[in-house]
Design a protein around this nucleic acid. Sequence first.
DNA 1: TTCTTCATGTAATTAGTTACATGATTGA
DNA 2: TCAATCATGTAACTAATTACATGAAGAA
Lengths: 231, 231
Amino acid sequence: MAGKDRDAPDPAPVLTPTSFALLGLLNLQPWTTYELAQQMDRTLSRMWPRARSKVYEEPKKLVRHGLARATTETVGRRPRTVYRITPKGRRALARWLAQSADGPVFESEQVLKVFFADGGGRLDTLRTLHDLRAWVHERTMVNVEVGRAYLDGSAPFPSRIALNTVVGRLLDDLLECLDTWADWASGVVETWPDAPGEAPADQASLEATLRQAEARAERWLGSGSSPPAQP
Amino acid sequence: MAGKDRDAPDPAPVLTPTSFALLGLLNLQPWTTYELAQQMDRTLSRMWPRARSKVYEEPKKLVRHGLARATTETVGRRPRTVYRITPKGRRALARWLAQSADGPVFESEQVLKVFFADGGGRLDTLRTLHDLRAWVHERTMVNVEVGRAYLDGSAPFPSRIALNTVVGRLLDDLLECLDTWADWASGVVETWPDAPGEAPADQASLEATLRQAEARAERWLGSGSSPPAQP
DNA sequence: TTCTTCATGTAATTAGTTACATGATTGA
DNA sequence: TCAATCATGTAACTAATTACATGAAGAA
């Protein structure tokens, strides 16, 4: 009941993961809000997608908490704000990183439509799967560009290459997973009758999925499933 | 500017994908709100996660639009509501299924923390990866149970087995993807110095990811990337 | 008979998005 | 010099979550 806001005694709205996402960016360097918005699109949106306008709210919160400082420059007659992290901000970031976090969220209206495919026709489902692959392809093209930029050294933040390699691997694996599935699913759906509600069971696929899940469960239990060593 | 609400002339708040998610459930059978809530947890939450309370709002919208009917029973002195889809509702569902939808959303505070690992220590990152695997394992256990129930015929909605097999495959593949990645990433991070900001580049991994993305792009272009046949 | 869990909702709050507005810069 | 795009924000709205409240049923 008490002890909930030890480090933010009284002021300002509470800090959310979105706040820390911005704080994490500020930990790299000072940014203008516009630059922050670009980083949101290019990087954060892949693992923590939020609307651009957050870029104008969250840093204000950070300032109220003393985790960042805002300095105002001008471009012509317009003011522009540059944010930089404070030492207190770095400490808060470190504390956040030490806390545990919620599990991932996956949401997809397209997959939802496949799930309810029996309310429509077979072609609807095929088109939905096609759209999904097209979407994956768009993202893939970006990944290819970014990857090449890192390899030829033209990418910004060369010092973050190790981190980006690790996270980038996951993001591309997820795309690969979606693409492979959508391709496979299209093949399956093509064999279906026109009303997906009457599609025949595919016992073999079901068994294959179950085996995959069982094997994964064993891997985890077998590996001890113990947390990393405590100091 | 006009023609935006052809089929819902004037009343009631606009239908969102969440409304159609519920409508999709109603297309299977009539449900009480409590049963709908259970279905949300068990199935929808994997591809369209929403809070329980939506189950009490969205069906009301559907009724106002004439897509569902509510009948009131009583349990003791308490009223209970049962919702059923109407013919108009089925048509609306079919129309929704024929429309295109947004791409998937992936969001993960844990991955965000790995991305900003250089703000903390190596052990923080390892613990985060461990937590992710633990989360995956929980979900995996559910998948195993559900898969077994389908195979031994004890699962509800045996007629939906084909659909569930297809969608279930994706959901399990995503878990597999996360688990495999987190396991690999743990191995990588273990070789890092205590300050993840100074981790060395891993050129080989970067190249491998790039090759995967390039191969995927070619597969898509090579396969014609054409939409399914139009009537 | 009391405690716990199942069941059924409503209300308050908030996180997030969409829409709007407008100055600066660039290039045709 | 005009249009398009880059840049910088604010305000209104709403989808969604959290907290609350309480009756019914079953178990101890």
